[in-house]
């Protein structure tokens, strides 16, 4: 069995779970500037308060998992992406404590709103920049990063950062559509509409720009007939975009978030296709990065047994907190 490949898929699942779940937590914060009423903000925060911590845990699994099964990739990517990683961590600190601190004070509530917004913005932007930096490729010599200090920062990687910010806003807006009602929901529909259109424009731009500037990626996508199967992705992009916009227009409460996840899944697949089989693009393949087989097997046993259990109780938590969040109740003893 190809344990390295299995683990590459599992780590991808963890990263996607992170993006899908923490994406809407971060997105809600990113929408705060357009939702100024304090009661609205309280409700928005309470739609994610019981689950954000679990959502963020997928990021720890992504990082910890990478160290465990692809230690070489981990030890190259972290120094290569040093500044955005640190920025993301600091951003997540400001974001994470805001959930608690915000309800502990009336006087400084505005401060923790700001901490929530800026922390989430920095985290989302950093994540997108890392994504862009990986697509650009990372220089490696002798099992160590050998590029420059600011290699990660280019107009392209910054654009990817902005795209992720917009994408999370879309996830946040569609999540709020599902979890709120009244004016707040109406405003969320609107936010979902605009962010969806912007996001699709970003995805289209990246999809066209990358093959244009990068012959390796162009070859991956445009070699006839090997690449023909991949062309289902752009077709799906059109279908899902239309589905998302239609569901927003028709005010279908539960659907837009799922369509939005579809957009993320497609982008994620596009990313995977563009870098495969590298984990550190153009330098280290997933097989080169893999830990010795007995490490891969040891953790795989746990993952196979425990991940279904984790999905079960995480699902249970979401079920307990299902339905609309009522603005008239909550945060009072």
């Amino acid at each position: 069995m190809d344990y390295a490949l299995i683990w590459a898929i599992l780590i991808s699942v963890a990263v996607f779970a992170y993006v899908a779940l923490d994406g809407f937590d971060l997105g809600i914060a990113l929408l705060f500037p357009w939702f100024k009423k304090e009661e609205d903000r309280d409700v928005m925060m309470n739609t994610v308060a019981p689950v954000w911590d679990g959502n963020e845990t997928w990021l720890v699994l992504g990082g910890g998992g990478l160290l465990a099964v692809f230690p070489l990739a981990y030890s190259v990517l972290m120094p290569a992406l040093y500044m955005p990683v640190i920025a993301m961590l600091l951003g997540l600190i400001f974001r994470g404590v805001a959930f608690e601190y915000r309800f502990k004070t009336k006087r400084a509530k505005g401060v923790w709103d700001l901490s929530f917004i800026v922390g989430s913005l920095v985290a989302a932007l950093s994540q997108g920049i890392m994504l862009g930096a990986m697509l650009q490729g990372i220089e490696v010599t002798d099992r160590a990063y050998s590029g420059g200090w600011f290699d990660w920062l280019t107009p392209f990687s910054f654009f990817c950062g902005v795209a992720v910010v917009i994408g999370y806003m879309m996830l946040g807006a569609t999540w709020l559509v599902m979890k709120t009602k009244g004016d707040l929901q109406r405003q969320s529909y609107r936010a979902g509409w605009y962010s969806a259109i912007l996001l699709v424009a970003c995805i289209a731009f990246v999809s066209l720009y990358l093959p244009y500037v990068d012959s390796y990626i162009a070859e991956r996508w445009f070699t006839y007939p090997a690449s023909v199967g991949l062309w289902v992705l752009p077709v799906l992009l059109v279908v899902i975009t239309l589905g998302l916009l239609r569901s927003l227009q028709k005010r279908q409460e539960g659907r837009p978030y799922l369509w939005g996840l579809g957009l993320f899944l497609l982008s994620f697949a596009g990313f995977a296709v563009s870098i495969f089989p590298y984990l550190v693009p153009r330098s280290i393949t997933l097989w080169q990065a893999a830990a010795p087989e007995n490490s891969l097997k040891f953790l795989l046993v746990g993952a196979v047994v425990l991940l279904p259990i984790i999905f079960a109780y995480t699902g249970y938590t979401y079920w307990v907190f299902r339905g609309k969040v009522d603005p008239n109740s909550g945060y009072h003893d």
Binding site: D53, G54, E56, T57, V60, L61, G64, G65, L67, A68, V69, P71, L72, Y74, S75, A291, P292, S295, F298, L299, G302, A303, L306, L307, I310, Y313, T314, Y316, T317
Partner: peptide, 22 residues
């Protein structure tokens, strides 16, 4: 990484998710 990574992986799978989930 091949030694301590899996142990920390187990920490995430058995502890962090459990705490955060409940």
């Amino acid at each position: 990484g091949p030694v301590i990574g899996p142990l920390m992986g187990y920490e995430v799978l058995t502890a962090f998710f459990l705490e955060a989930g409940f």
